[in-house]
Computed example of a mutant assay.
Amino acid sequence: MLKIKGLNVYHGHVQAVRDLSLHVEKGELLAIIGVNGAGKSTLLETLAGLHRPAGGDIYLKGKSIAGKPPEYIVRRGISLVPERREIFHSLTVLDNLMLGAYHRYRSDKKAIAGDIGEILELFPALAGRERDYAGGLSGGLQQMLAIGRGLMARPELLLLDEPSIGLAPLVVREIMASLTRLKDAGVTIILVEQNTQYAVKMADHVLVMERGRITLSGSSEEIMSDSQVQQAYLGRSIRKQGDGSLASLCV
């Protein structure tokens, strides 16, 4: 469904993504993990049209979308739920959801109401709060709203950047469960997530990024069993060589 070949992206004079290639199959949940500054968010933003690649190409269903503007990419079926949500605080929940469907408002107006109903079924905590201002919602509800707004574009590929950041564990579980339901419904997902245990367990395929490159790739089971990943991202304790003491190498 999505293929990236030799992608290079700069922030000013700093190269954030280096000769990166990957592919995502339809219906797959791909998790991308790595420390801050690894280039994960830049990759998602480039896929969404917010950065123009310096080299390489991006293909969606066989057609190049590299360097295309965000509105074109949304119409082609890619929707980004950005880090820290970026909802419109001064607008209502309903208005935020409607903005997610701006590109099809005139042509698909009747279906939009039904889509809103589906969002409220996916996130029942938002039901009954359609007229509330988004800025008055809790962080968890705002994240649900941000995902709902992204889904209103009816994407074939949903990009999620750190959806669990700053949220309580119970809310994180609810949001991750909703992503599993979306995947089961056929939505293809690329998930960038610092909560490595959730991300790896949910994913069909996992990539580890470091300094703009993919340094490790494998199935969920392969990544979970990799000693380097366990030490660096899963907080597993290992025994130091020589003295028999234990050390946690969680990043």
Rank of each mutant, 00 (worst) to 15 (best):
M1C: 10
M1V: 11
I4G: 05
G6C: 13
L7M: 11
L7S: 04
H11T: 03
Q15P: 00
A16S: 07
A16K: 04
D19H: 05
S21R: 10
V24H: 02
E25Q: 15
E25F: 12
G27C: 12
E28D: 12
E28W: 09
L30E: 00
V35Q: 10
K40Y: 00
S41R: 00
T42H: 02
L44C: 03
L44R: 01
E45P: 05
A48V: 06
L50V: 11
L50T: 11
H51Q: 09
H51C: 08
P53F: 03
A54E: 14
A54V: 12
G56H: 11
G56D: 09
I58Y: 05
Y59A: 09
Y59P: 04
L60T: 04
S64Y: 07
S64H: 08
A66W: 10
G67I: 08
K68I: 07
P69N: 09
I73P: 02
I73G: 01
R75N: 15
I78V: 12
L80V: 12
I87H: 00
L91V: 00
T92M: 05
V93A: 05
N96I: 04
L97M: 04
M98Q: 07
A101C: 06
Y105K: 15
Y105W: 15
S107M: 12
D108P: 06
A111F: 07
A111T: 11
A113M: 10
I116W: 02
E118K: 11
E121V: 13
F123C: 02
F123H: 02
P124F: 05
A125L: 14
L126I: 06
R131D: 13
D132T: 13
Y133E: 04
G135R: 03
G139V: 02
L141A: 06
L141F: 06
L145R: 02
I147H: 00
G148R: 01
R149G: 00
R154E: 11
E156R: 10
L157R: 01
L157G: 04
L159W: 00
L159I: 09
E162N: 04
S164V: 01
V171S: 08
V172A: 08
R173L: 14
T180Y: 12
R181H: 07
R181W: 06
K183A: 08
G186H: 11
V187K: 06
T188Y: 06
T188K: 00
I189A: 08
I190G: 03
V192N: 03
T196G: 13
Q197P: 11
V200R: 08
V200Y: 10
M202H: 10
M202R: 08
M209C: 01
E210H: 11
E210P: 05
E210I: 04
G212M: 04
I214Q: 02
T215E: 10
G218L: 13
S220Y: 12
S220Q: 14
E222M: 12
D226L: 14
D226R: 15
Q230T: 14
Q231M: 14
Q231N: 15
Y233D: 01
G235I: 04
I238W: 14
R239W: 14
Q241K: 15
G242C: 07
L246G: 11
A247F: 13
A247K: 13
